[in-house]
Design a protein around this nucleic acid. Structure first.
Lengths: 340, 340
DNA sequence: CTGAAAGCGCTTACAG
DNA sequence: CTGAAAGCGCTTACAG
């Protein structure tokens, strides 16, 4: 493989001069710079990543810790990964993807080995075991998802409280007084999936304030179980006129379930979900929803991370906790309830 | 950060001895080995990845080139990525995920910089522009997908010819004589998506041999366009009793379309698709299908790649082109055609 | 069985 | 504006 010594020799300069000419880190005469650049191009020179990382203590790689949990709906995960990967590339970073089920160990190895300049954590839990590891690491970290303790990390998430309120308000304003909220499985809550109870508690409170009934229920996070769950839920709550979904699998399964029961939205039931527009297109979902903005969250996380890596913000700059405001995308699945 | 010098000092040995004690690459007295291992554990030593890569010319990283093309159905991609990532981890490799739209440039940078020990290519086209780059690279490469020219690379793919024949045979054996095959958009074919015509040509030939009619049509690869396409296809071919799908988006959309037309399978129409079991579960698909085995293909590709990287097979061992035999997963969506 | 030293390919103070 | 040299943290022949 051609190295910087080959380039230097071809250009007739010292290796240090070649390095500077290529990096632009100090003034080089136009003539020499051009000669070096030309030699590098002709020889097809690409710096050795390991050598550069060793010399600079920088790898230009971002670690992406994404766990494919059996109780998460995989297609929803992909969107975060794409958002992170695309933004990283645009900013000149490669992505090292770790799907290791042992998150803390994987994170420790990635940071201790200096393979990565920073990390993005997905599937963040209330009491995430990766956080203590991350806090002692020299590299900065950005999270997509809100943990209980945000010290030492930058945090980005959808404002699930506001999302819960917005869903309730929207339906109550239309005249609904009997709502059902389908959340993730209880197991996700036990694991510390705070977004479940953040949305749920806010929805319950908003419903109480408006004097309407809201029943929270759990639903499976995979097919075909969730279809069966939805049938049971609709059987159990015939009086409900509004359905709120904080469960992607439920959203994906609902059209079929409604078809089977000859129900249509918003005629028989008003429905509002919480998922991304891309997700809605993938599954052809006809339901209005709170946009969960995975691409935007991934982008925000990477941008902030890169700012810290490149010291574009002072080292002691306070860490941020930033919420994306929920926006309701109207797909026409809500209307005033039918008189009964 | 603690380095091998710190470990050596703590154990009271030379750096080289510490290195050997940890790697086991030469005989070390039990006593010294234990002292070194203990010191490493106590200090929390993790080797610097860049330094090790520089010294050994090995990074223990596999490059995964996956393009998120607008005309590919993203959820289907994820399965290949998971298969590759999980197998790599099991074999002690990290994954560098590149989603760069400029595949050849990304591949050249990854290999020239020695960031990766080998690469796995997804979305392989008939005349894939990344292949010339890969052939000149010193690292081995494994493909998921069959290109026109397989020299110098290991190739793994579903046997799409056999899949096409199997789908036709299955329906013809049941008595069907009028079939429609829904493929990917023409655009995928133009880009060189060989699996489209490999399945289609084999299906056409099998139908001709059996003396039945098979009409090949294209369908969009995204929602909601594909729903509209399917309606148009069913409108145009009322005489068809069997539907073959080589298009994931079409499979995902078909239940809704059939519902809308009050059609059921296999009563009104026999349907057989080509997708993975995991995909079927994600979308609750009720259709029998040829298993596309993305996890298995990802695993095979990584295993072979690692064998080459680690020289477990001779350097001049011939490259392989291995096809996974299609298996029909019966979900009860096919039956003899209704008499008309 | 163990140690001292060279070398991997960069970058960056240090001299001039 | 340019060059010679040190150093990043490993591994691995080379000596003993």
């Amino acid at each position: 493989m051609v190295n910087i010594g080959d380039v230097a020799r071809a250009a007739g300069v010292a290796r240090s001069t070649a390095s500077y000419a290529l990096s632009g880190k100090r003034a080089i005469s136009d003539e020499v710079r051009l000669r070096v650049q030309q030699a590098a191009a002709e020889l097809g020179y690409t710096p050795n990543a390991g050598a550069r990382a060793l010399a600079t203590s920088r790898s230009n790689v971002i670690g992406l810790l994404a766990q494919f949990l059996p109780d998460e709906f995989a297609p929803a995960m992909l969107q975060y990964i794409q958002g992170v990967a695309n933004t990283a590339r645009d900013l000149g970073y490669d992505i090292l993807l770790s799907s290791d089920p042992d998150g803390p160990a994987a994170l420790k190895r990635l940071t201790d080995s200096r393979m990565v300049d920073g990390v993005v954590l997905l599937n963040v839990a209330e009491d995430d075991e990766r956080l203590p590891v991350l806090r002692t690491a020299p590299q900065p970290g950005a999270l997509v998802g809100l943990p209980g303790d945000c010290t030492g990390v930058d945090v980005f998430d959808l404002d699930f409280e506001e999302a819960g309120r917005a869903m309730v308000e929207h339906l109550v304003d239309l005249g609904h007084r009997d709502l059902v909220l389908v959340s993730q499985p209880a197991h996700v809550v036990e694991r510390g999936g705070a977004y479940v109870w953040r949305l749920q508690n806010a929805a319950i409170e908003a419903a109480a304030q408006r004097g309407v009934r809201l029943r929270p229920v759990h639903g499976s996070s995979s097919q075909p179980d969730i279809g069966r769950d939805l049938h049971a839920i609709l059987d159990a709550h015939p009086e409900a006129t509004g359905l709120l979904l904080n469960n992607e699998a439920a959203a994906a399964a609902l059209p079929t379930v409604m078809h089977d029961r000859s129900l249509s939205a918003p005629g028989d039931l008003s429905v509002v979900g919480r998922y991304s527009d891309e997700f809605a297109r993938t599954f052809s979902l006809p339901f209005s929803s709170i946009e969960s903005a995975p691409d935007r969250l991934g982008r925000m996380a990477v941008r902030q991370l890169v700012r810290r890596i490149e010291h574009q913000i002072p080292g002691d700059a306070p860490h941020v906790v930033r919420f994306v405001a929920p926006e309701l995308v109207d797909r026409g699945s809500t209307a005033p309830p039918r008189r009964r």
